[in-house]
Write a protein that binds this DNA or RNA. Structure first.
Lengths: 187, 187
DNA sequence: GTTGCAACCGGAATCTCTTCCGCTTACAGT
DNA sequence: ACTGTAAGCGGAAGAGATTCCGGTTGCAAC
């Protein structure tokens, strides 16, 4: 496919920079499409062509950290990367994903709320494929795909936001529960 | 607290009837607040005072079946109700919840999308409390609350919609994976 | 039957997301 | 450099959710 036009690339950068500035200044709730467009000096149509919708913009803001994370579990050092036992890698993977999710909870919440299905393009599929691979290696006879969904589900942003925010549950308790789940499934 | 005024009760009934008719005729996507209000012959303000927002209206439509379900697992016959072993009850509970969720997938999807936090008032709390009770009975030393969240998470509407719809996964595969999870957690 | 008031009602106004389409521009091929 | 065109652009228009508030009404107390 053709290279991105230079004006498009420039606009993309301006939009992301403006969006980051707005999130830093007013939080995620202040991130309205019209405001981002105005701050970036482009029309709202440009935002939509580039990012699809509000949730697409949120995912784009998350993307940088997501790439780091994917690199870490695909080719980084153990126990996250190759070299450790599948069960240990799965535990490390879910723990790291928990940390990343908590760190960007506001953006993820907005992204999933704006359009729930978008979550399942891109990042989620990569996480699912990785975890299913680990499960399949540890227990070839199991339904690795469904089990991977089940282990990833407790990390959904709305649930974590509820428990960590209103519920007063600490991250470490969630991590411990995940470890127990992995032990039960891959044990 | 005071009894509901008769005009308010009448309007509530008219609104729910109109909403059900619209869902039956045009599906969940046709359920716009203005349209429901017009069909019920009330102003939109009345919808909002009564149901809070779009997701509140969706939950109200789900409510009847939810009450049946709660009665079944709280005081119905085993294995769902009292009388069976905790592990078996937990399996039956998650299976029944899976069925109910699939049955009302569209409404649940809309309800969670419209306001993700609303899910965690009412029905979710009841499910969580019940499952945590069963887990606590089977394994007093475990963190029953967090494990209950983890076992309920795979039943989130967006995930099920994705797997059952686009992914081509059958309900029975999901059920089998849940059974395996329960087996892993409850010994 | 009258009265006081709290709850309720309606729908216009507002707010934000999203779509649409006529105009502009980068850039590959000549 | 010239040109055709596909990609990109902007912002007005459309859609639907949500808020607001002046007017109305059920009903409990007297």
């Amino acid at each position: 496919m053709r290279r991105e036009r230079t004006d498009a690339a420039r606009n993309r950068a301006k939009i992301l920079a403006a969006a980051e500035a707005i999130v830093a200044a007013h939080g995620v709730q202040g991130l309205s499409m019209a405001e981002v467009a105005a701050a970036a000096g482009v029309g709202v149509g440009t935002l939509y062509r580039r990012f699809g919708d509000r949730s697409g913009l949120a995912y784009a803001l998350i993307d940088a950290r997501e790439r780091e994370f994917q690199a870490a579990f695909m080719e980084g050092p153990p126990p996250l990367g190759p070299g450790a036992e599948p069960a240990e890698r799965a535990r490390a993977f879910l723990g790291a994903l928990l940390d990343r999710t908590v760190e960007q909870l506001d953006l993820l919440l907005m992204a999933e709320t704006a359009g729930p299905l978008a979550r399942f393009g891109g990042a989620y599929d990569a996480h699912h494929a990785h975890l299913a691979m680990l499960i399949g290696r540890a227990r070839p006879e199991a339904d690795a795909s469904c089990l991977a969904d089940a282990l990833l589900a407790p990390l959904a942003a709305p649930l974590l936001a509820h428990r960590l925010g209103d519920g007063g549950v600490a991250v470490e308790r969630v991590r411990a529960a995940l470890d127990e789940l992995v032990a039960g499934v891959l044990g």
